[in-house]
């Protein structure tokens, strides 16, 4: 294991964030606050509570998930796409470092950032609504697993993309809609039956549901299903990235 290399990549990626620290912290704090103003105040005045949880608190896990998914993908995909685009990837490819270590450095850094971001959003949210976390261990597990899995997914997008547009494509056209439609801001029980069935095919629902369960002890689907879905997605991404490195996909001629 080339620990120095993993640390070098990790440190490089974290330094990139440090240069834009203000944006990395202020932006999520502002957007979270905005969600509270819009969803919490405007809608919350009509829906006082969902299944006994005040609406303001109910949307917190969904908000964290939304940021976690989009930021993990954005960070990790940019992290690997940019060296490919600029050509500096030559150094990574010629270094005594295994694909696993490359992934560990890039994905580890992206996931770390997302987890920190999740914590910031939770802190911001706690200023607006009283938060209780019933299963902190599970909460942490879902946070880490989701950050890791979607950073890995972002890494794959960063390898696949051959232009900046494609980098935006998947988050914009797939992930954000799925998150909004996946019960981030409502319970699927509130939907008409037909839509409820459709929503059950949305993988993001399982992530949000499990995460919300760790806060309030109630979920749209069983915790086992949530964990299973997260792990299945993680395994899928691992398989895909392994295949990419084995074939040199978009990395080596």
């Amino acid at each position: 294991m080339n620990v120095h290399a993993v640390r070098a990549i990790f440190g490089f990626e974290m330094a990139r964030t440090r240069r834009t620290l203000l944006q990395s912290i202020v932006a999520p704090v502002i957007s979270t606050s905005l969600y509270f103003v819009v969803f919490g105040a405007a809608i919350g005045s009509r829906i006082s509570s969902i299944e006994g949880v005040p609406y303001g608190a109910f949307i917190v896990p969904g908000l964290v998930m939304l940021s976690l998914l989009t930021q993990s993908i954005a960070n990790a995909s940019f992290g690997i796409y940019f060296p490919r685009f600029s050509g500096t990837i030559y150094e990574i490819l010629s270094a005594p470092i295994s694909p696993f270590e490359i992934v560990l450095g890039y994905v580890g850094a992206a996931a770390t950032k997302s987890i920190a971001l999740g914590a910031i959003i939770l802190l911001t949210a706690s200023l607006f609504v009283p938060l209780r976390i019933e299963h902190p261990g599970w909460m942490a597990l879902f946070l880490v697993l989701t950050a890791g899995t979607f950073s890995l997914f972002g890494f794959i997008i960063g390898l696949w993309a051959d232009g900046f547009e494609k980098l935006q494509l998947v988050p914009l056209l797939v992930v954000t809609p799925l998150t909004f439609l996946g019960g981030s801001f409502y319970s699927v029980d509130m939907l008409p039956p037909a839509w409820r069935t459709v929503t059950l095919f949305n993988p993001v629902l399982y992530l949000v549901s499990g995460f919300r369960w760790s806060f309030f002890g109630q979920a749209d689907v069983s915790v086992g299903a949530s964990l299973g879905m997260t792990l299945a997605f993680l395994v899928g991404c691992l398989a895909l990235v392994t295949w990419m490195f084995r074939t040199g996909y978009r990395l080596k001629n």
């Binding site: 080339n2 120095h4 290399a5 640390r7 070098a8 990549i9 440190g11 490089f12 330094a15 990139r16 240069r19 150094e91 990574i92 270094a95 005594p96 470092i97």
Partner: peptide, 16 residues
């Protein structure tokens, strides 16, 4: 955006 020092130190680490 890196400094000269940072990029050269990075390379050393990368090579183990």
């Amino acid at each position: 955006f890196e400094t000269v020092w940072a990029t050269v130190s990075f390379s050393r680490g990368l090579f183990g």
